[in-house]
């Protein structure tokens, strides 16, 4: 079995994996990173979105071996020192989650969207989140949360 090294949420792991093992199953089944859920099997829903070397990927569509040598950040590794990331906080403030199943992926996709466009319009947010499905919220509050998160992340950048 191929041997691989991977850093997840700041912790280094070395694992022997079957070539067919999906990254999301490595995270969930082997490393106990169950904060990242699986919502579909056709990479439509985006619930399993994580950051792979700083860019969002659907971890159900990446083989674990493809992430060899990479740095992965999941929803569990976003906050620092016990406080939530501004985007997580914005989701809370705007009631942008109900059941919460799509939320880890949605938050990751939202952060990735701001990498390209730090101050997105409503339309740009809707377009940027097209790959992530939510069945509870109708997206209104998610869009508002991403606007708020963008503003707060922008502020953080400006004041630091």
């Amino acid at each position: 079995m191929p041997r691989m090294a991977i850093t997840v949420d700041g912790v280094k792991y070395e694992e022997e994996v079957e070539p067919r093992l999906l990254l999301v199953h490595l995270l969930r089944e082997r490393l106990g990173k169950t904060g990242t859920p699986v919502g579909c099997d056709t990479s439509n829903c985006g619930a399993c979105t994580v950051m792979l070397d700083g860019k969002s990927v659907k971890s159900c569509s990446v083989l674990a071996v493809q992430a060899d040598g990479c740095d992965v950040v999941t929803i569990e590794g976003l906050g620092a020192n016990g406080s939530m990331h501004p985007m997580q906080q914005a989701f809370h403030e705007e009631h942008a989650l109900q059941c919460g199943y799509c939320t880890p992926g949605m938050v990751m996709a939202a952060i990735d969207l701001l990498r390209d466009n730090p101050d997105p319009s409503e339309d740009a947010i809707r377009e940027g989140l097209e790959g992530n499905l939510c069945r509870c919220t109708g997206y209104c509050n998610i869009v508002r949360a991403v606007r708020r998160g963008a503003q707060e992340m922008g502020q953080a950048v400006r004041t630091s």
Partner: peptide, 8 residues
């Protein structure tokens, strides 16, 4: 929310 937002 907090639990759901932080993957717990």
């Amino acid at each position: 929310d907090r639990r759901l937002l932080t993957g717990h």
